[in-house]
Amino acid sequence: MSTATQDAPTQDRVILLIAEDEESNYLLLKTILQKHCDLIRAKTGKEALEKFQENTVDLIMLDIKMPEMTGIEALKELRKINQDIPIIMQSAYVFDSDMEEARQAGATDFITKPINLKVLKETLTKYCPALQF
């Protein structure tokens, strides 16, 4: 059985697509965000592309290191589909070269792990003002 936050977004709520392969990292984001917006989860970059094409999404959070297709590879593909949607890259292992590659591929912003709650909220509301904490 599907959950409301996963498959049946509530009308007029902000919808975030979170591409995160680590269960604990996703559960942390879910705990912080589920009261404020609807969430769609992808566990791989490839799945993120599929979910984006199947759903109306307001903002995407992409982990840089994922199986099947990295976040940067997914970012490049997502930008072929949509130039305007905010895409926030996240990683615990951010190197300047990764950030520069993501920036060139069209990343809107970056969040480092472990997630800083204040930075997360500020970053999300900056690109998605309808999201209220």
Rank of each mutant, 00 (worst) to 15 (best):
T123S: 00
V14E: 00
M66C: 05
E47S: 08
Q132T: 10
L49N: 14
Y26I: 05
F95N: 12
Q104N: 14
R103C: 03
K113N: 06
P9W: 02
V14D: 04
V57F: 03
E54M: 15
I72P: 03
K121A: 12
T125H: 09
P9V: 06
L39F: 05
N116L: 04
I18V: 12
K43S: 05
L120M: 06
G45L: 12
L17A: 00
E20S: 05
L78M: 13
N25V: 05
L28V: 11
E122V: 01
E101M: 05
K65Y: 08
V14S: 03
N25F: 06
K126V: 02
F133D: 11
T108M: 00
Q83C: 07
N55F: 04
Q104D: 13
M1P: 07
I15A: 09
Y93R: 12
V57P: 01
N25E: 12
M66T: 02
Y127C: 00
Q11Y: 12
M66E: 06
Q132A: 05
L27S: 09
D38Y: 10
A48H: 04
D63P: 01
E77N: 06
A19D: 03
A92Q: 10
I64P: 02
D98N: 14
A105S: 12
S24L: 12
K126W: 01
I15C: 14
M69Q: 12
T112N: 05
I15F: 06
T108I: 01
V94Y: 04
L75A: 09
M61H: 04
R79Y: 10
T31E: 15
M89L: 00
Q11T: 14
D12K: 07
T70S: 15
V94D: 04
L28I: 14
E47L: 13
A42H: 05
I64N: 02
K51V: 13
K35S: 07
E23Y: 07
R103S: 08
K35L: 02
T3M: 08
K80Y: 08
G71E: 04
N82D: 15
L78Q: 06
S91L: 02
D7C: 15
Y93N: 13
G45E: 07
L17P: 00
D96M: 11
S24D: 15
V57T: 10
A105D: 01
K35T: 01
Q6V: 14
A4W: 10
E47I: 07
L17K: 01
K35C: 00
T70L: 05
Q132K: 11
P129C: 08
G45S: 12
A105C: 08
T31Y: 12
K126I: 05
S97W: 04
T44M: 08
E101Y: 02
A19G: 04
M61G: 03
D63S: 02
Q90P: 08
K76M: 08
Q11D: 14
I87G: 01
T70W: 03
D21S: 09
L78V: 09
G71Q: 01
Q83D: 12
F110H: 06
F133I: 07
N116M: 08
A130M: 07
T56I: 14
T44K: 08
L117H: 06
E54K: 15
L117D: 06
K43N: 04
